[in-house]
Design a protein around this nucleic acid. Structure first.
Length: 272
DNA sequence: ATGCCTAACTAAGTTAGA
């Protein structure tokens, strides 16, 4: 059977308006097929739909004033909306989840709450959001659809996913509760594609703006792509486009991606 | 224990990020 390769990326852009040029440059250079964006920091009306369309991408977005905001982009295709927001969380005022079908895949794009400072109401919100997300992830997995859950999870899964834990021990990203929620999610049967591809390497996706952390490669791995069971078998490669983080006025995150080998054609039921 | 750096909102200073 003929195969097609699909590249799926997640990128916390930290403001789509000040970094639109950086986004377009990255799209042009790396040509991802499907993109999950987080931290748009823009209302729906402020989303640069024309520029993204001119770059050859269809898009769906879920914005809000000043903070949060997520979007799904598809090259030469229009993503088909599955949902905005998590089910049963209609009172959530934050725009943190959008889901769409693209090219036979179901793509969930998430921006999980940061949760700092902890303990406190923001950490409580993070854990509550995580619980609702995991419940939805379980339903997606049980549905049997090919699913990718990509985004900024705001969790450093293990001590192997950070340059040094010393100054982060009290941070919400490393708390046992945050890590347990992520471990529970993986235990449903999802594959963490970056860790699967690089089982023994330090891989980072975020370098904060402080203390020359980029220049000293003092990073964290918090942007994750999770694959449903059938898709995990089709995982071909993964990586981080670190050059984007080195650009002037860059986001503090770098685009993180996987490539999947998918069948071009699906056998019809009853076909030989 | 806090600031470091960056952006939004708005017009100097706070809030949020992670």
């Amino acid at each position: 059977m003929e195969r097609r390769r699909v590249k799926i990326a997640t990128f916390n852009i930290n403001g789509i308006r000040p970094r639109l040029d950086a986004l377009l440059k990255w799209l042009e250079r790396e040509s991802p097929d499907i993109v999950c964006l987080q931290e748009l920091k823009a209302t729906d009306a402020q989303f640069p739909a024309d520029a993204i369309a001119n770059a050859g991408y269809g898009a769906l977005w879920h914005g809000q004033q000043s903070w949060n905001g997520v979007a799904i982009l598809a090259k030469d295709a229009e993503p088909v909306l599955s949902r905005r927001g998590l089910p049963g969380y209609e009172d959530d005022t934050h725009s943190r989840y959008i889901e769409a079908a693209v090219g036979g895949l179901l793509i969930g794009c998430l921006y999980l709450p940061n949760g700092n400072p902890q303990p406190g109401p923001k950490f409580d919100y993070k854990l509550a959001w995580f619980e609702r997300f995991n419940a939805h992830a379980k339903a997606l997995l049980d549905s049997g659809h090919p699913v990718v859950l990509a985004g900024d999870y705001n969790v450093v899964p293990t001590d192997e996913d950070i340059y040094n834990t010393r100054s982060w021990l009290k941070d919400a990203l490393l708390q046992p509760e945050s890590r347990a929620a992520y471990a529970d999610l993986l235990a449903q049967g999802w594959t963490d594609a970056l860790r699967k591809t690089f089982p023994d390497e330090r891989i980072y996706t975020f370098w904060d703006y402080f203390r020359n952390h980029w220049q000293t490669n003092s990073g964290l791995r918090i942007d994750h792509l999770l694959l449903s069971k059938d898709l995990a078998k089709k995982l071909e490669g993964a990586g981080v486009d670190k050059w984007v983080r080195g650009e002037p006025h860059a986001s503090d995150h770098a685009p993180t991606w996987v490539t999947l080998k998918l069948g071009r054609t699906r056998k019809k039921a009853g076909a030989a």
